[in-house]
Nucleic acid binder design. Structure first.
Ligand SMILES: [Zn+2]
Ligand SMILES: [Zn+2]
Ligand SMILES: [Zn+2]
Ligand SMILES: [Zn+2]
Ligand SMILES: [Zn+2]
Ligand SMILES: [Zn+2]
Length: 586
DNA sequence: GAGTTTGAAACT
DNA sequence: CAGTTTCAAACTC
C-alpha cells in the first residue's frame, strides 16, 4: 500500500515534526547533515478524517521490508547512527524565533525529563546539517517515506483551558501523533513484518484555527511505551517502532489495564491483539522516586500505569526534573546505565556446535540477595538476565545466568587476590614472617582459575534495559519510550560518539531460560540476537563528560513545560523545596 | 485478587 | 557507613 504523499510547504506552521519513520514504525535518524537543509519541506496536514480513515482502514500494510531496504539503499545511509534513541514524535524541528535557523530537537518537549539543557551536543551534532546534496536527497527520501506515516491534526489542548497556559500559548496546537504501534519481528535488520495495534482512539474537537502558533505537543500518555516488540536486534533501531498516521484525531494507545474513564472525551476503543502494557503500580512514591520503575527507567508514566497520585507526567515535568536532580545529588549515577556488557573474547563452543562469544553483561552495582539465591526476579541481576558478578554481595548465589562464583569477575578477583598474595609473599621474603600471611601452599590450587581473557568493557547498556519490559537479553528498540533527559543523555551521548559499532551476539545467557511470563520471550524465541557494541573509550569519555552538559543553553519553554498546572512554580524554589511541597500536598 | 516475600531505595 | 523503614515488584496461594 502506498499512501499518498502529503507533503508541501506549510509556511504557517512554525513547528512541525519531521520525523522519519519507516513502515516498521521505527524512527530513522538521518545522518546528520541531511536534516537541516531539507527540513523546510514539511508535511501538509492531511484531512483529519481522511487520515484516520486511512489509518483505520489500512493500518500500515506497507511492504515495509522492501520499502525500508530500498530506502536505505537509495539513501545511502548507514543505519544505526542513532539507534533506538527516540520516537518519531520526539523529533521535532522548528524555526528559531531569533536566529531564523532551523532547529532540530530530539524530544525536547516530548521526552519527559528533558529540557533543553539536556539536549545532547552529540545528538545535535548529528542532526546539524552540512548541506551535502546527496544527503539532502537522502533525506528527501526519508521525508517522503515518513510522510506516509505522518500527518498533522489540530486539536485543542485540554490544558489550554488553564488560564496560565493559555496566556502563554494562545490558540491551537498542531499535534503530531505517532501513536499506533508496529511490530517488528525478524532478526534481520530490515526484514520485518509489521502489524499495527491500535487500542484506542480518542477524538478531539478542533477549535480556534486563528492562531498561527503550532506546537508539537508532548506525547504524554500516548504510546504503549512498554509495548513488547519482539525486536531481535537493536540493529533495526534506526526506526521508530511505533508510528502511524493519525490525522485529525488523537490516537491514544491505552493499556487494557488503563482506566477507561479518566475524564477523557469521546473515546472509541479498539483492541490490540495482544500485549501487556501495564507498568508501574506506585502508590506512595508519586512515581518520583526510584521505587517507580517508570521513573527509574527515565520514562514518563503512561496510561497503562496503575499508579496513584502520579507526578511522573509531562504536566509535572519540573517536578520530575527536580526529583531527578535530587536523586542524582544523592547518587550521581542513579540514572546511569546499570548493566555493563563486557565482551568476552574467549569464544566457547555452543551446543549447536558453533563458536559463540558469550556475553558477560553484568549489573554494575550488583545485587545483595539473601534469600532468593538470585534465582528469581527479586534479584536485579537475574531480572536483567545477567549473571552475578564480583560486585554482587549475594548469598548462596545460584543465578542461572551466571553464578557469582563462576563469573569472570569473580575469577578476576581471585586472580587479583592471588597476585596480592604473591606480592605479600615476595614482601615477606625479606621481612618478618607473619603468622597470618599466606604460604605458597595456602595460595592453594589455582587450577580452578580459568585464564582471564581480555575483558574489555564494550557495551554499556542503558538502564532502560533494566526495565522489565525491555530486558537486555531481549534487545529491542528503545524508541517509543519516553526517555528521560538523563536517559537520553546516557544513551545518545554514547551513540553520538560511535564511530564504528561492532557487533556481538547479544544473548548473554549461556543458559536456556524458558521465561514464558515474558511475552517478548515468546515472540523472539529462536531468533539470534545481535547487539550493538560500542567502543568503550568513547562511552567512557562521554560518561565522564556527562556532568558538564548542564550548561547547555536552554531555549524557550516548550509546550509540555508551559502547561504545568500543579502547583504553581516559584522561580527560586529549589528541588528540595519543591519535593517538600509535594510532601505537603499529601 | 489478597496476602506474603523480597531486596532496593530511602531514610536516620 | 550501617541499621532501619519504606516501597513496589515478584511471588504464592
Ligand atoms: Zn510509578
Ligand atoms: Zn508508571
Ligand atoms: Zn506514575
Ligand atoms: Zn542477586
Ligand atoms: Zn547479582
Ligand atoms: Zn547472585
Amino acid at each position: 500500500m502506498e499512501m499518498p504523499l502529503r507533503r508541501s510547504l506549510l509556511p504557517h506552521y512554525e513547528e512541525i515534526a519531521a520525523s522519519t519513520s519507516n513502515a516498521h514504525g521505527q524512527l530513522y535518524s538521518p545522518s546528520s547533515s541531511a536534516l537541516i537543509p531539507c527540513i523546510q519541506k514539511q508535511f501538509q496536514s492531511c484531512n483529519p478524517s481522511e487520515c484516520v480513515d486511512d489509518f483505520l482502514a489500512d493500518p500500515l500494510e506497507v511492504d515495509s521490508a522492501q520499502h525500508a531496504e530500498t530506502f536505505l539503499q537509495s539513501a545511502n545511509v548507514v543505519p544505526l547512527l542513532l539507534p533506538s534513541c527516540f520516537t518519531a514524535s520526539q523529533v521535532t524541528t522548528k524555526n528559531d524565533d531569533y536566529t531564523n535557523d532551523w532547529v532540530v530537537e530530539v524530544g525536547a518537549q516530548t521526552l519527559p525529563h528533558l529540557s533543553k539543557k539536556h539536549l545532547l551536543s552529540g545528538s545535535l551534532i548529528l542532526l546539524e546539517g552540512s548541506g551535502d546534496q546527496s544527503i539532502d536527497e537522502s533525506f528527501d527520501k526519508i521525508l517522503k517515506f515518513s510522510s506516509e506515516n505522518i500527518c498533522n491534526y489540530v486539536e485543542p489542548d485540554e490544558l489550554l483551558e488553564h488560564q496560565e497556559a493559555s496566556q502563554h500559548q494562545r490558540g491551537i496546537r498542531r499535534h503530531l501523533r505517532f501513536e499506533a504501534t508496529l511490530d517488528c519481528k525478524d532478526n534481520a535488520a530490515f526484514n520485518c513484518h509489521t502489524s499495527s495495534r491500535v487500542r484506542e482512539v480518542v477524538d478531539h474537537v478542533d477549535s480556534d484555527h486563528q492562531s498561527s502558533e503550532a506546537v508539537v505537543v508532548d506525547n504524554e500518555g500516548h504510546l504503549p511505551d512498554n509495548i513488547e516488540p519482539p525486536w531481535d536486534t537493536q540493529q533495526v533501531s534506526c526506526f521508530d517502532q511505533q508510528t502511524l498516521p493519525c490525522g485529525g484525531q488523537r490516537v491514544e494507545v491505552l493499556s487494557q489495564y488503563a482506566e477507561s474513564s479518566k475524564g477523557k472525551r469521546n473515546r472509541e476503543t479498539y483492541t490490540y491483539e495482544s500485549g501487556d502494557f501495564k507498568r508501574c503500580n506506585c502508590q506512595m512514591s508519586r512515581c518520583l522516586k526510584l521505587y517507580c520503575e517508570c521513573f527509574a527507567a527515565g520514562l514518563y508514566c503512561v496510561d497503562s500505569c496503575a499508579c496513584e497520585n502520579c507526578y511522573n507526567r509531562t504536566d509535572y515535568e519540573d517536578w520530575v526534573e527536580d526529583s531527578r536532580e535530587q536523586i542524582e545529588l544523592r547518587n550521581p549515577l542513579a540514572f546511569a546505565p546499570t548493566i555493563v556488557e563486557q565482551a568476552n573474547d574467549s569464544p566457547i563452543l555452543a551446543d549447536d556446535g558453533n563458536w559463540t562469544t558469550p556475553s558477560s553483561a553484568r549489573h554494575k552495582r550488583g545485587c545483595k540477595c539473601k534469600r532468593s539465591k538470585c534465582l528469581k526476579k527479586y534479584c536485579e541481576c537475574y531480572r536483567a538476565k545477567v549473571g552475578c558478578s564480583g560486585g554482587c554481595r549475594c548469598e548462596g548465589c545460584d543465578n542461572s545466568f551466571g553464578k557469582k562464583s563462576e563469573s569472570i569477575f569473580q575469577r578476576e578477583e581471585e586472580w587479583k587476590n592471588l597476585l596480592n598474595m604473591e606480592e605479600l609473599m615476595s614482601d615477606q621474603k625479606g621481612g618478618t614472617a607473619n603468622q597470618f600471611s599466606p604460604t605458597w601452599e595456602e595460595l592453594g590450587n589455582t587450577s580452578h582459575l580459568t585464564p582471564l581473557s581480555h575483558q574489555v568493557p564494550s557495551l554499556i547498556l542503558s538502564k532502560i534495559w533494566d526495565f522489565p519490559y525491555i530486558s537486555q537479553a531481549q534487545p529491542q528498540d528503545g524508541s517509543g519510550l519516553q526517555l528521560s533527559p538523563g536517559q537520553l543523555h546516557w544513551y545518545s551521548s554514547a551513540l553520538a560518539s560511535v564511530n564504528a559499532p561492532c557487533e556481538i551476539m547479544g544473548d548473554g545467557s549461556p543458559h536456556i531460560h524458558n521465561d514464558n511470563s515474558n511475552p517478548a520471550n515468546k515472540l523472539q524465541s529462536g531468533s539470534p540476537n545481535q547487539e550493538r557494541v560500542f567502543p568503550p573509550q568513547q562511552i567512557q569519555s562521554d560518561r565522564l563528560g556527562s556532568s558538564s552538559t548542564a550548561g547547555l543553553q536552554s531555549g524557550r519553554k516548550l509546550s509540555s513545560q508551559a502547561v504545568s498546572s500543579f502547583p504553581p512554580l516559584s522561580p527560586h524554589r529549589n528541588s528540595k523545596d519543591r519535593m517538600n511541597q509535594i510532601e505537603d500536598e499529601q
